[in-house]
Every structure is written in C-alpha cells, then in structure tokens.
C-alpha cells in the first residue's frame, strides 16, 4: 500500500469519526423534517400526520420545521417505496396504516415492511357496519338474514381493494355464511356518499369517515367490530351516541375485534438514537390535550405500541391476514 493511499484512508477514517462522534451523543434533528402521509389529502392517514404536525408546532417539540407531504399514489405504495429509497435518512417520517405489511402480501409492490424502521402504532381506528338510513334492517341479524336470502346480491362498498375493508368483508362472509359483492372505491368518504345515494347496501367505514353522514341522517351504524362498546361521548344524533351502538358480537355476528392501527415509521438503516428521538417525540405528542381531543373527535382508540410490542402486534396481524388472503387467492408472495 502506498503512503498516499494510506494517508487517504486515514483521512477518510478521521472524517468518518468526526461525523460519527456527534451521533453517539443524543441525536437531534438539524434540518427540516418531512412527514410523508401514505395517502392523499383529507383521509385518516393525512389527518393523523397533520394533527401530529400541528401539535409539534404548537408545543415547539422540536426546533426544526415540519413539512407534511402526501405520497398516496398506488394506495400508499408511493410513500413506502419512497421510504425504502430513503434508507438511512432520519428526516423522513412515514405515516401509514397496516397496509405497510398488508400491501406487499397481496400486490407486487417494491417494498416490504422490513425495509422500514417502525416507530410506533399511535391509535387504533374502529370499524362499524353501516346501512342506509331508510334501510329496513334494525339489527345486524336482520341485515345478515336478508343478505343470506340473496347470495351475491348485496353490495358492500369499501376503500381500496384487498385492504382492511375487503378483509373485514370476507371475515363477515365467513362468520355469517353469506356471500357479498365487494365494490372498491377510492376512499371511505366516497364510499359513504355511495351509500347515501343508495348505490350500495352497506359499508364498514371508520367512525370518522361517516360521522357527518350519520349526523345528517343519511346512514346509520348497525354494530361495532370491537370487544366492548365504543366509549361514551356526546350524542352524535339527537338520540344516539357511539356508545349506544351494540358490538357485533352482542348482536350475533361473531367478529370480536377488528381495528386498523395508525402506524408511524422511519426509513430503514437509521441509528438507534435517531429512532429513540422519534419514539420520544411521538410520546410527547400523545401526552397533549390536543391529542386526546383528536382521539375523541375521530372516535379512535388511544394506544401506543412501540418496540417489541409493536413487532408482536404486527406479526399476529400478518399471520391473520395471510390466512384470509390465502383463502381468497390474493397472495402474490
């Protein structure tokens, strides 16, 4: 090895040490942070990213500016692929749902959830079964009976294909032994309007996606896919609030729990310190009154899964969804 080459290597080593040194101490962002919402503007994921952004700005939880960008192309694949390409960049925080691990199962996208570093699952969104306001069914039992009488005639709408809404639809089919026709739309909001117009018979929107429609008297929930009734809150309509809606199990549809986690990620190959900074940041966000208000307003369940807990949750969900996907013949790998 020549002297020149050796000195180059030495210099490179010195530079590497120089740059690595500050990282050994507690990591802090030193340039603007980008929040990547893996959905278009206006939906639940976008809403979460912007709420977290607004809380960080309000309480000055970091001195760097935070920008939200939407990368919702390809049902979120755009955002995740972007995250994969940003490996090692601690200035990109990705907001998504369980589609981070579900999408790679059912379509040939270029990312896997293992390409990302999980920060936390910050909230669980609930699901309900909705029908049109003037539909004849008073309970989920009546609805299922009518659906069983006409196999394949009942139209269930939902957001996206082979995502949570369709998974839940297939679970209902199995649990109640009925056959439904699933029609995928672009978003929950669009699905809600299709139900209001009577073009579909039911959907399984999150509370927040159909809140306005329920208040406006165009559609109503039959049951909630949760182990116990949703928490008491102010009445939504003149007479009813979320707590008055029975769980699906108590009304005879045996699906005890179905929730959609709201997940937050960093790109792959970030350092433990960088991850720790964001876990801490999200924890701080969660301890504000604004966060409580957001959870209440959107009728989600407050959780904070991180580290091993999050991994466990993810692996259980993967197993569960993989089984359904295999039965439906959706698996691509």
């Amino acid at each position: 090895m020549s002297a020149a080459a050796r000195s180059t290597i030495l210099t490179a080593g010195a530079i590497a040490v120089l740059f690595a040194a500050p990282a050994a101490a507690e990591w802090r962002p030193s340039k603007p942070i980008e929040f990547v919402a893996t959905a278009g503007p206006g939906g639940g994921t976008d809403n979460l990213a912007r709420t977290v952004q607004s809380i960080i700005v309000k309480y000055k939880l970091t001195d760097q500016p935070v920008v939200v960008v939407n990368k919702g192309g390809g049902s979120g694949a755009e955002g995740y692929t972007y995250a994969k390409a940003s490996a090692g960049d601690p200035y990109r925080v990705i907001f998504g749902t369980s589609n981070a691990w579900q999408q790679p199962m059912v379509s040939r996208v270029a990312f896997k959830h293992t390409d990302l570093t999980p920060i936390a699952a910050m909230a669980q969104d609930e699901f309900l079964l909705w029908v049109k306001q003037d539909a004849p069914y008073k309970s989920v039992g009546e609805y299922l009976k009518a659906a069983a009488a006409k196999p394949g005639e009942f139209k269930m709408g939902g957001a996206q294909s082979k995502d949570t809404d369709e998974v839940l639809t297939r679970m209902i089919e199995k649990a109640a032994n009925v056959k439904l026709t699933y029609i995928p739309f672009k978003s929950g909001a669009e699905t809600a309007v299709q139900l209001a117009g009577g073009h579909i018979d039911s959907h399984v929107n999150n509370p927040n996606e159909s809140l306005g429609q329920w208040r406006g008297g165009t559609q109503r929930p039959l049951c909630a896919f949760s182990p116990q009734r949703l928490p008491k809150g102010p009445n939504v309509t003149a007479t009813q609030g979320w707590h008055d809606i029975p769980t699906c199990v108590e009304s005879g549809l045996n699906i005890p729990q179905f929730q959609q986690p709201r997940t937050v990620w960093l790109p792959g190959k970030v350092t433990a310190d960088q991850l720790a900074f964001y876990v801490d940041l999200m924890r701080k966000v969660q301890n504000t009154p604004e966060w409580k208000e957001y959870i209440e307003r959107t009728s989600q369940t407050d959780t904070f899964l991180t580290g091993a807990e999050f991994e466990k949750f993810m692996n259980e969900d993967i197993e569960h969804v993989r089984k359904i996907a295999a039965e439906q013949g959706w698996l691509v790998n």
Binding site: G73, G74, S75, A77, Q103, V106, S107, R108, V109, Q160, S161, K162, D163, P184, F185, K186
Partner: peptide
Amino acid sequence: IGIDTVSGSV
C-alpha cells in the same frame, strides 16, 4: 400505470 383501485394490483 400504477396501482389499480379496483383490483389492487400493480
């Protein structure tokens, strides 16, 4: 081009 809404495939 891209992900298809109706089938979810690429």
